[in-house]
Simulated scan of single mutants.
Amino acid sequence: MSAQLNHTIIWCRDKQTSANYLTEMLGLPRAQPFGPMLIVKLDNGVSLDFYNNDPPIASQHYAFLIGDEDFDAAFARLQARQQPWWADPGKQRANEINDYGGGRRVYFDDPDGHLLEIFTRE
């Protein structure tokens, strides 16, 4: 038997705000309700299940492998929001794009302080 990640719950203060942020940034379809959660489906079959929780929200890291055109679009949306981004998860290299492995990657925070990463090469 093989194991595959099917879904994970993302704790947030406001599931609508957090799910909308992710779908807008990555150009994904709107989140769909499922019980008390809002579900964002990714192309590889994994879902991110946004669930309201009381603060404090422990920061997690979520990384998204995307194509070059999708990176361009997501990065343009990030810049349009005038939101900080970094080339590293330690947030030491502000306003830089990491070119590790011949691709591009940046890190930025979602509304609950989760560290999101978009990158084009593994």
Rank of each mutant, 00 (worst) to 15 (best):
S2E: 14
Q4A: 14
Q4Y: 12
Q4E: 12
I9M: 11
R13T: 15
K15Y: 04
T17V: 15
T23F: 10
T23A: 08
M25V: 11
L26P: 11
L28I: 08
R30M: 12
A31G: 13
G35Q: 09
G35A: 11
P36W: 04
P36M: 08
P36A: 12
L38Y: 04
L38H: 11
I39P: 03
I39G: 02
V40T: 05
V40P: 07
V40I: 04
L42Y: 03
L42G: 01
D43I: 07
G45K: 04
S47W: 00
L48I: 12
L48R: 03
N52M: 05
N52T: 06
N53V: 07
P55L: 04
P55G: 02
P56E: 03
Q60E: 14
A63M: 00
A63R: 02
F64M: 05
I66E: 01
I66S: 10
D68F: 09
E69W: 02
F71I: 02
A73K: 14
A76R: 10
R77P: 04
R81M: 14
R81I: 05
R81K: 15
Q83G: 03
A87T: 02
D88H: 04
P89N: 10
K91F: 12
Q92E: 14
Q92C: 09
R93A: 12
A94Q: 15
N95M: 09
N95A: 14
E96Q: 13
E96T: 00
D99F: 09
D99N: 13
Y100R: 08
G103S: 03
G103R: 03
R104W: 01
R105V: 00
Y107E: 08
F108S: 05
P111R: 10
G113I: 09
H114T: 02
H114F: 04
I118Y: 02
I118V: 06
E122H: 14
